[in-house]
Write a protein that binds this DNA or RNA. Structure first.
Lengths: 181, 181
DNA sequence: AAGGAATTGTAGCAGTCGCTACATACTAGT
DNA sequence: ACTAGTATGTAGCGACTGCTACAATTCCTT
């Protein structure tokens, strides 16, 4: 057989879907293969190794998340920074984005354990979100790059609080940071 | 044999040490047993199941971290909130505390995946750190409980940024949040 | 000394892991 | 028709997983 139409895009879509539902770190070849309608044998054949597969899925999910964020929050500038952050946090708590947050924390956790692939992906994702956020800051915001870093770091803290069931702490934090002035 | 002196404390110490070095989610019985100078057989015997063992180790590590934080930053009030946060962040980046941050992110990651034990532990740890932080806020800080939540959420964001190698973003965020007024 | 409970080693089970050897297709180019 | 290269199923390897059955050892109590 000559190279048929590359089956990897379809596989990646199914694999990404599986990872979104089941997490990244605990994903293993046979269940993934089943979910993608193929065999572990073929996954290794197409991706070379589980490591490369996971790396590709990770980047694919990062791209998907970026797309979904763009769709949900088009690049129009918010009225205030508080509204901007609150909109984003509300979005991230949505059933659509919650799985991505799960995978995101998988990546963060793997990164701090020294996984180079996940560390690189995590850093790239942060860089991307910083740009993304910058474009949505209010017109009036001065020094947007720095403000984006400040707000993004706060939002990451909110994600952690949400993860351990302390959304109330996160909400209080947001209220407090945007109180008075 | 009648009940000898309870061997669990010594075991827990060795197990906690192992987890600090190797992470929580990837810990398995046989390597742990070897590190503790015993067998997987005995670990199950003493702890009932791996799940209960991991739960005990988690709480033990949480207590250890609390102790170490107390030692490193005695309950004296800081001059300013900025100094307080900066001291804490500097501390958490220390080789002493980095392993605890690794385990912490393991817990957060497991919590968002629905692990009830880790979710409970994570929530309890947050509650504990909030009290701890509150006692270290400057005398002049009004509404300390709310300020503690605001600062703690920011610090958690810093931990995430550090994990993926974006400490620079975290530093810029801290500078920005404590700039001007 | 005998009995009973606590403790521990040995060995193994049934399952999963990533990955691979082997054989078999299948199809396009010659 | 033949060949070369691509694609795929079957079966299994060796390592690891949490856990357990069984038997032995140890020590206190009676």
């Amino acid at each position: 057989m000559p190279p048929a139409t590359d089956p990897k895009p379809a596989l990646l879509a199914a694999l990404a879907d599986y990872v979104l539902k089941n997490g990244l770190n605990s994903a293993s070849l046979r269940p993934m293969a089943k979910a993608a309608g193929t065999s572990d044998r073929m996954l290794i054949y197409h991706f070379g190794s589980k490591d490369e597969l996971i790396t590709e899925v990770t980047w694919r999910l990062a791209a998907d998340l970026a797309d979904k964020l763009d769709d949900a929050l088009p690049p129009t500038r918010a009225e205030t920074e508080a509204a901007c952050v609150r909109d984003i946090v509300r979005l991230l708590r949505t059933p659509t984005f919650q799985p991505y947050m799960m995978v995101w924390l998988d990546i963060v956790s793997a990164a701090i354990q020294g996984n180079a692939n996940h560390s690189a992906a995590g850093a790239a994702m942060i860089d991307g979100y910083l740009d993304w956020l910058e474009q949505r800051l209010p017109e009036t915001t001065k020094n947007k790059p720095v403000r984006a870093k400040a707000l993004m770091t706060l939002i990451e803290g909110v994600v952690v609080m949400d993860a351990v069931g302390r959304s109330a702490v996160a909400d209080a934090a947001i209220d407090e940071w945007f109180a008075s002035g």
